[in-house]
């Protein structure tokens, strides 16, 4: 079952207006979105904007991080940024950004990706380096797990989800989809068990 039929535009790309007019190859083109998806993406995008504003306000209170030889300074900036954002979002809960209806839409898109005709490719992409396949418990406002190798987020999935501003990324940890602040290293929100098991 798919509702991705009514084309209303290129909403997933609206956060990046420069992308739309660049004459892209078909592989990089934004897929069509339905009216319902467009509505939900708009909710999501508004919440992302709120987060980015908070992030920028917090970072403005810190010394500017420029490329440096001093690794300690990079680490100190990340830690301070994470701590201050977590404080500012002290009451944040899972689902604040991935709301119930946003999660529902994201789960459907992810399900189509991982159970659809290209599922083999997507599953191959997220195959983990970590042979232990240990389960990691994730929480909003925690530091994103740093002791396990990054999983490549499938590029075809990224082309179907709303695009994120710089310093935010969708990440896959086990079966969870996280929204990660890459500069602070924080888990901003997550959808647990978003990646379906192998069988529908």
């Amino acid at each position: 079952m798919s509702s991705r039929v009514g084309v209303v535009g290129l909403l997933p790309w609206l956060l990046l207006p420069e992308v739309v007019s660049s004459g892209l190859t078909h592989h990089a083109q934004a897929p069509p979105v339905s009216v319902e998806e467009a509505r939900v993406f708009k909710i999501f995008t508004a919440r992302i904007r709120q987060y980015v504003k908070l992030q920028k306000d917090v970072e403005a209170s810190l010394p500017v991080l420029k490329p440096t030889n001093e690794v300690a300074r990079i680490a100190a900036h990340q830690q301070a940024l994470a701590r201050k954002i977590a404080q500012a979002r002290g009451g944040a809960h899972q689902g604040d950004i991935f709301t119930i209806e946003v999660s529902k839409t994201f789960r459907r898109i992810i399900r189509e990706e991982f159970l659809g005709p290209e599922a083999r490719l997507a599953r191959r992409t997220i195959r983990r380096d970590d042979p232990s396949e240990r389960v990691v418990r994730l929480h909003v406002n925690d530091i994103h797990p740093e002791d396990i190798p990054l999983t490549t987020t499938p590029p075809t999935l990224l082309s179907k989800l709303p695009q994120l501003p710089k310093d935010l990324a969708y990440r896959i940890v086990g079966r969870d989809l996280t929204l990660k602040d890459t500069k602070a290293g924080l888990i901003v929100d997550l959808i647990p068990n978003a990646i379906p098991l192998n069988t529908p």
Binding site: P12, V19, S22, L24, A28, A30, L150, T152, P155, S159
Partner: peptide, 15 residues
């Protein structure tokens, strides 16, 4: 960055 080959990176690369 192949850890995160998002549309923004692809568009930048093409340009």
């Amino acid at each position: 960055d192949t850890n995160y080959m998002n549309p923004a990176q692809l568009a930048w690369l093409e340009k």
